[in-house]
């Protein structure tokens, strides 16, 4: 019996233990801890805010127009006399939900198509990648505006549309990650045994590129959040009176010189969430051993 006293006599960890392990590693560095803290704060806020919002977010009261922050209205009121604090804590809900599901769609189609292209190579890969390149060359905001103006701004339109446009980049990353493992002998071995492409993707490639794709997805989430807020800012995201940071900034920006509070609160909300996701994604990458500085996304 060879080397029965191996130092690695640890029991294999359950997947839950592995996830906890990764989170502990992420939180052990200051940047990761801050990022995680901000992200968790935002998620909890988004889930629980309807229960403790002090006012009705759509209650218009002209007599309370543009009040400065006070003990009654912590963040002041906006041009229609609505409470800015209420609207700010509720303003992340739509954005978070839409972009979260959008990112999952982006990850799924982008990741799988990228892996498939990386695996089959040849002419199919060439054709698909040129199509992806063509889509990459279209400014996403123009394309989004077109889709939204044709199909409307409902959630059912926004989630797949955002998911599609942010998945293009993931195709490239997933394909590059696949190319790293495709030349390894365990893939050749699986091919020689006669496994189907699907089985090779699922069993051999996916476990090895999963980490890279997940990290990429986390980064895309923060970009998508910014993109979604931009759409709202332009008036193509959610429809009033739903509270949304992009929309709030858009509405209050003209009054910024004398009613700064109506702009500052949603800006802080949006930027802190994006920073939080970014820091978390970076810490996640480091905890998985992926160096984002050397493997820049395409």
């Amino acid at each position: 019996m060879e080397n029965s006293k191996n130092i690695f006599n640890e029991n294999p960890k359950s997947s839950l233990a592995k996830v906890l392990d990764i989170i502990t590693t992420m939180a052990s560095k200051p940047s990761g801890f801050i990022g995680l803290a901000i992200l968790i704060f935002h998620v909890i806020l988004a889930i629980s805010s309807p229960w403790f919002a002090p006012y009705d977010y759509k209650a218009i009261n002209p007599s309370l127009m543009l009040n400065a922050p006070s003990s009654e209205f912590w963040f002041g009121t906006d041009s229609l006399g609505r409470d800015v604090f209420t609207r700010t804590i509720l303003g992340g809900r739509t954005a978070l939900t839409i972009t979260f599901f959008g990112s999952i769609i982006a990850l799924l189609w982008g990741g799988l198509l990228g892996i498939f292209c990386g695996l089959v190579g040849g002419r199919i890969d060439d054709i698909v990648m040129r199509i992806v390149d063509a889509f990459l060359s279209i400014p996403w905001i123009l394309a989004m505006l077109l889709i939204v103006s044709l199909l409307g701004t409902t959630t059912e339109v926004l989630i797949p549309a955002l998911g599609f446009f942010y998945g293009k980049g993931i195709v490239r990353v997933a394909r590059a990650a696949t190319h790293d493992v495709i030349a390894k002998d365990f893939i050749v071995s699986a091919k020689a045994r006669g496994h189907s492409n699907l089985s090779i993707i699922w069993n051999e490639i996916l476990p090895n590129v999963r980490d890279a794709i997940l990290v990429e997805g986390a980064m895309r989430w923060s970009w998508m959040l910014l993109g979604f807020s931009s759409l709202s800012f332009l008036g193509f995201g959610v429809s009033p009176p739903t509270p949304d940071w992009g929309l709030m900034i858009s509405n209050a920006r003209g009054l910024m010189s004398f009613a700064w509070w109506a702009v500052i609160a949603p800006i802080v909300g949006l930027s802190s969430l994006i920073i939080g996701i970014n820091l978390t994604a970076d810490a996640f990458a480091k905890a998985l051993g992926i160096d984002r500085s050397t493997k820049a996304p395409v």
Binding site: D185, F186, S189, A190, S199, N203, N208
Partner: peptide, 26 residues
């Protein structure tokens, strides 16, 4: 086939059980 370098020919994310079950299942 048996390959030169087992570091490359065994999927690093599979347990020994998963590795050996591939041909048996197939």
């Amino acid at each position: 086939l048996i390959f030169q370098n087992p570091d490359e020919s065994l999927n690093p994310n599979h347990t020994v059980e998963q590795i050996l079950s591939q041909p048996l299942k197939l």
